[in-house]
């Protein structure tokens, strides 16, 4: 009995591609937890989602021109990511469009363009791999890219922790304190793009953000300290990746959706039952308050 269970968990990782996929996902969970926490606290979750979708055309063009090369895809994604970010920022500053509409419009057009490009020059399977991830496609270079992305992101957070906290929590003070930087936005955006590209093979463009957003949103429901939130979201991301890959191996579901489903289960559980910030807690408070009011009225 126990042996069967051990086998259930261990068998997937007897295959090299699974180990590489796992390595990549675990590494990206670290940077995903860090970046995701900032996304959640800065209310950039939807913009991040838009950004990840809009990387598709850049990746597709690189793929058509240079094949599966990781560097080309990274550069293509960086180019479209920056183009979309700059374009929508300009549009929201200079026209009456607000930021979400500008970003949303750009991302839809870019996403549609990307899908058109991939389906024109590839097969349906290629398109599915781009959209939902393809664990078999995780090569050694992808693993290196993941390690580099995680390393750079971790370094950024370790070095500029105080600046990051102030930038998210209280930009006015950060300015008065002389720790304010215009570079922050750009650095953050570049890190996000690098990590999204690194997550592409395992997660796919549609769900790549899941590895960033879900662990952070879950941790946010539990933690009252920023450092704890960073740590918890990174650990959650790792646990979710392991479970998701095992699920994917045994069920034949793509790796992206299965990881996101595992992380999603954690998120839903927390959203319901977190002792301080969960739904049940709020409902219980509201119910108690109503009862108290009724008793006073009597």
């Amino acid at each position: 009995m126990i042996a069967t269970w051990i086998d259930f968990f261990a068998e997937p990782f007897r295959y090299d591609f699974m180990v590489r996929g796992l390595g990549s996902a675990v590494l990206l969970s670290i940077s995903g937890g860090l970046l995701g926490s900032v996304l959640v606290l800065r209310r950039l979750a939807l913009l991040g989602d838009a950004l990840s979708h809009s990387l598709l055309p850049g990746v597709a063009v690189a793929w058509i021109l240079f094949g599966q090369g990781v560097m080309a895809m990274l550069l293509g994604a960086l180019a479209t990511g920056l183009l979309i970010a700059v374009g929508s920022t300009l549009l929201s500053r200079l026209t009456r469009l607000k930021e979400d509409a500008a970003f949303g419009a750009f991302f839809l057009v870019a996403y549609a363009g990307g899908i058109a490009l991939v389906s024109q020059s590839g097969t349906r399977v290629d398109l599915l791999h781009f959209l939902f991830g393809h664990i078999l496609g995780v090569g050694p270079t992808d693993l290196w890219l993941s390690a580099a992305a995680a390393g750079v992101t971790l370094l950024f957070f370790v070095l500029f922790y105080r600046g990051i906290v102030l930038e998210v929590f209280d930009p006015t003070f950060s300015r008065a304190a002389g720790m304010h930087g215009r570079w922050f936005q750009l650095a953050f955006l570049s890190l996000a793009v690098i990590n999204l590209v690194a997550a592409l093979q395992t997660m796919g463009v549609v769900l790549a953000l899941g590895l960033f957003l879900l662990p952070a949103a879950t941790a946010y429901l539990w933690c009252d300290r920023f450092s704890a939130m960073l740590l918890v979201s990174a650990l959650l991301g790792m646990a979710g990746s392991v479970m998701g890959l095992i699920l994917s191996f045994h069920s034949g579901l793509s790796s992206g959706p299965s990881i996101v489903l595992c992380l999603g289960a954690c998120f839903l559980f927390s959203a319901l039952s977190s002792p301080r910030y969960g739904l049940l807690h709020s409902l219980r408070l509201a119910w108690r308050e109503r009862r108290a009011v009724r008793h006073t009225a009597d």
Binding site: R42, R162, V168, D170, T172, F173, R225
Partner: peptide, 17 residues
């Protein structure tokens, strides 16, 4: 103060800033 009031941070940590 235009700070993020739901930021996971304690009073002491804010003062330490």
């Amino acid at each position: 103060a235009e700070v993020e009031w739901d930021f996971p941070i304690t009073v002491r940590e804010v003062v330490a800033q």
